[in-house]
Design a protein around this nucleic acid. Structure first.
Ligand SMILES: [Mn+2]
Ligand SMILES: [Mn+2]
Ligand SMILES: [Zn+2]
Ligand SMILES: [Zn+2]
Lengths: 144, 144
DNA sequence: GTGATTGTTGCAAAAATTGGCAATAAGAGG
DNA sequence: CCTCTTATTGCCAATTTTTGCAACAATCAC
């Protein structure tokens, strides 16, 4: 509860939702883990703190947080969905089709695309957390 | 089997997979539906043609097709995953956060981004089927 | 603080998705 | 056409995710 970068409780209340210990603990878990965290990992961690918390509560909380924009989700393609506290400045990822390596990129990198789409379609792209597939520099060049 | 734009059977065989009536029927269903089609819709359709086909077969076939690039998948955010025959020229979608409307855009629209990322990171973006969130023209301007 | 209101939780059941496995059948070779 | 190999299927069970609902508790008004 000390490491929040935003007023999560205020956002929840402003949207008509209640601040419960379960939700706080889930946000705490996400903050502590830092990077991409699976639901299973969050649940496992909560088990130690409070074994009465139910898995369905975690499912529901994560879904709510994503809807409210407090959390972003990611689907690597490896079947598991990951969650992460939404930063003030969004970021995205490059995922190599060959080696699977992931690389984080800044939101700026997609601004050109957003502008081009706005010009052409009048649509204001405002994407949270893209996973862009492709071939990384290492895999593109044959290792000689 | 007549409306295929690509030699699906050849691609399957070349990759060491077999061409089975189940896989053919699933591809047929995707071709006929045309747009984004859910697994449930495909399964329902197959039921009428051949009630012995199992749902797990559909799951496995769709996963395989996506891996081979014959089919692209999409996650609107509404919880259901959609599938669609991969076209020769990829396309993407703009999804309005407000009204939920979807708009198709051409692959060209993201080429600028791909180039920028290549310049900056050496990563060759080669994305199939993006779902870009944002605000559509209709929702951005107050309806007067 | 007390009580009323109503969003939230844990539980259990339902539904969706995945995985193991023996029977089947596609594809290759003769 | 027949035989062999082995990928694939349907079936079933395991696992994961969603949903309905009564008990609970966060919030608000007083
Ligand atoms: Mn991320
Ligand atoms: Mn599409
Ligand atoms: Zn790579
Ligand atoms: Zn809209």
């Amino acid at each position: 509860m000390s490491h929040y970068t935003r007023d999560f409780e205020g956002i929840l209340r402003a949207a008509g939702y209640r601040v419960t210990p379960q939700r706080i603990q889930i946000l705490d878990a996400l903050c502590d883990e830092g990077g991409h965290t699976s639901l299973a990992a969050i649940y496992l961690r909560l088990q130690r703190i409070d074994p009465t918390i139910d898995k369905s509560t975690v499912y529901r909380a994560l879904k709510l947080f994503v809807t409210l924009g407090l959390v972003v989700s990611a689907d690597n393609g490896d079947g598991e969905v990951y969650y992460e506290i939404a930063r003030v400045q969004p970021h995205h990822h490059l995922v190599c089709r060959q080696c699977g390596q992931q690389q984080e990129i800044d939101h700026d990198a997609i601004q050109l695309m957003a502008e081009a789409i706005y010009q052409q379609y009048g649509f204001q792209v405002n994407t949270d957390h893209l996973m862009l597939n492709g071939i990384c520099a290492g895999c593109r060049l044959p290792h000689q």
